[in-house]
Design a protein around this nucleic acid. Sequence first.
DNA 1: CAGTATCCTCGAGGATACTG
DNA 2: CAGTATCCTCGAGGATACTG
Lengths: 148, 148
Amino acid sequence: MKHAELAEKECAIARTWAVIGERWTMMVLRELFRGSHRFEEIQAKLQTGRNVLADRLQQLEADGVIERRQYQDRPVRHEYHLTQKGEDLYPLLLAMLRWGNTYTVDEPPLRLRHKSCRHVVEPRMVCDSCGEELQRRDLRAQFSENAW
Amino acid sequence: MKHAELAEKECAIARTWAVIGERWTMMVLRELFRGSHRFEEIQAKLQTGRNVLADRLQQLEADGVIERRQYQDRPVRHEYHLTQKGEDLYPLLLAMLRWGNTYTVDEPPLRLRHKSCRHVVEPRMVCDSCGEELQRRDLRAQFSENAW
DNA sequence: CAGTATCCTCGAGGATACTG
DNA sequence: CAGTATCCTCGAGGATACTG
């Protein structure tokens, strides 16, 4: 199965993976969330091939995750910004950050401080209805009949 | 940069990606969370090469995300189960599920119902200290000096 | 049934030169 | 500075036969 075919499965996780699942895509998103918006800036940081970066940016734009904004006329130059659809990937990044800080490093290279309550944040997944932290055993999966 | 080199970066997201970022790895995890535990079962569902699946399972075991449990003697047969470290990837799956349900499908192929409050769950990321939903703009990033 | 071994394909990623 | 174009490498993934 080719990477793009995941987008055709009746599965939200597979389809999400089709958007973000290529190696450099997630690293590009990390840079965008961090505040890098220009090609050279991202390329210098990630040390990836220019063609690879150009391709990933085009794909993310095609998927509606980022948009290009022209900031200069001659020559034409663009910045890359997350759309709302892109911003909504933030919880996913938070989940990776938390897991990574817990299991893959000694000292967390990045901590997030909540401006309002001033605490270092450990992001938690809760139910939007009752506010309880979500445990797998408390959830009942309901698949539609054509689900993958 | 090779995939495995991401594990050496001083970045929790890159290191997490080194564990879960290969194409079939996430699909294998999805099956495990769904309750599939046997090789044939997973292979039949994902339609992936047997060698690829065997390799991914070995890697996940080496990373401490799953463990093999012998359930039969002759011939020796194992089931694959998530460890606590693996279970802790659940928020990440939830984040992908929510985003995918919102942006990539018409009708969600999978919904999760919270047994306690009986509502269909929309998972939300909140601050563990104050309980407020986490927005990127409310967080201040603090990098250690050697962070990638 | 649960893998291992072997061989193959193809495309993601890398390197570099070039352009306005 | 921000790409595009071109060519190349290597490894992830696929297919299949085989084993206890």
